[in-house]
Design a protein around this nucleic acid. Sequence first.
DNA 1: CAATATAATGAACACCATGTTGAATAATGT
DNA 2: ACATTATTCAACATGGTGTTCATTATATTG
Lengths: 205, 205
Amino acid sequence: MTEKLDRRKARTRQLLHDALMALLAEKNAEAITVTDVTERADINRGTFYLHYRDVGDMLQQLKDGVYDGVRACVERLDIADAMRYIDLEEPYPVSVAIFEEIARHGEFLRIMLGPQGDLSFAIRLRELFSSRVHAKLQLLSPDDTAIPTDYLVSYIASANFGLVLHWLGTGRALSPERMSRIMVNLMNYGPLVSSGIRKAPGREG
Amino acid sequence: MTEKLDRRKARTRQLLHDALMALLAEKNAEAITVTDVTERADINRGTFYLHYRDVGDMLQQLKDGVYDGVRACVERLDIADAMRYIDLEEPYPVSVAIFEEIARHGEFLRIMLGPQGDLSFAIRLRELFSSRVHAKLQLLSPDDTAIPTDYLVSYIASANFGLVLHWLGTGRALSPERMSRIMVNLMNYGPLVSSGIRKAPGREG
DNA sequence: CAATATAATGAACACCATGTTGAATAATGT
DNA sequence: ACATTATTCAACATGGTGTTCATTATATTG
């Protein structure tokens, strides 16, 4: 299936990959040159072009790989399912799996979604959440609400994406299970009630 | 105070500014060269360097200007104030003013916060919201909540920033007043209740 | 208006990363 | 051991960079 695995090719790709990752941690992606990568990897500059068109192309392949992994998890999300876990002990398994997948590529995502990162990639991931939220929301949402559905979707997607960004930015200190619970809770009660600033009208204080 | 206003300098700056804005609408900011800008502006390439160090420097000055304008508005935000407008007819004036300020730089912000845009600028703006939310939240929030304050702040800041992004991305079709009401409503009741998917426990359906 | 100061121009320059080529060398799979 | 394929090395033209300097054009000031 993956057809070719010449040791030399694999080695070169790995060296280039490691070099790029190291450089990404140091400087802006747009500022990284082919020369930078090949010098760092101790690979002939011409060899680079036997594998990738340019640095942007190489980075794109990395991004695509990570994106596909996350997408496979996010596609299992279901708001109605998530709501059933609101006051349960155990966290919503699908969102736990998403956080675990994100953690697998934690370092790469931290960089690509940080200040030195790539806005188009961030938007693409955010859109992934959005489209999933949108698909499931349509089935549930009445149309007579004061809030247009597209804004609602943006709100939910951005808010949860924001949780992910903060998680990545703080070294993923909390467990995927904990993150999952926070997410479901905020989704249901809203930020003010969840934080205890405002009491939920029907619950005991 | 602003010391210098030689007509020639102002004219050159304006031409370069217009050229850069036009190019930003066409291609990735990182791909815009000094030659691009000066050719578009019909200005000698050398002249560019009498005003800016490079394209990044020029763009930075534009970003700083817009940022400062938004910051001046955001600094007036107060969550406790906003909560008082939850079920009122009129929108919260401070957030209306923020949307109006954003609209003033709408085209620039739409580009800089879109796929061709600048993630570090987006993060900087998001941080602006965050710091404001954080400052006001500390005064209100009990510490015994299940949700760490920093995640709560990220959630709120990202969610509202997401509303702004969607507003910019859809041609700012809704009025600042309408946006303000949507924002306050979502903040208070959370996405599910605000959308009517879940009933607020204490309110009439 | 005239005198002085300041800006913009055009041309030239060395510099550096690019992307490509072709011949030589090395490592690999079988 | 052999044919295949990957990597290396040197060289090349290209194009944007950042700087300089003499020249020209345009403002500001008295």
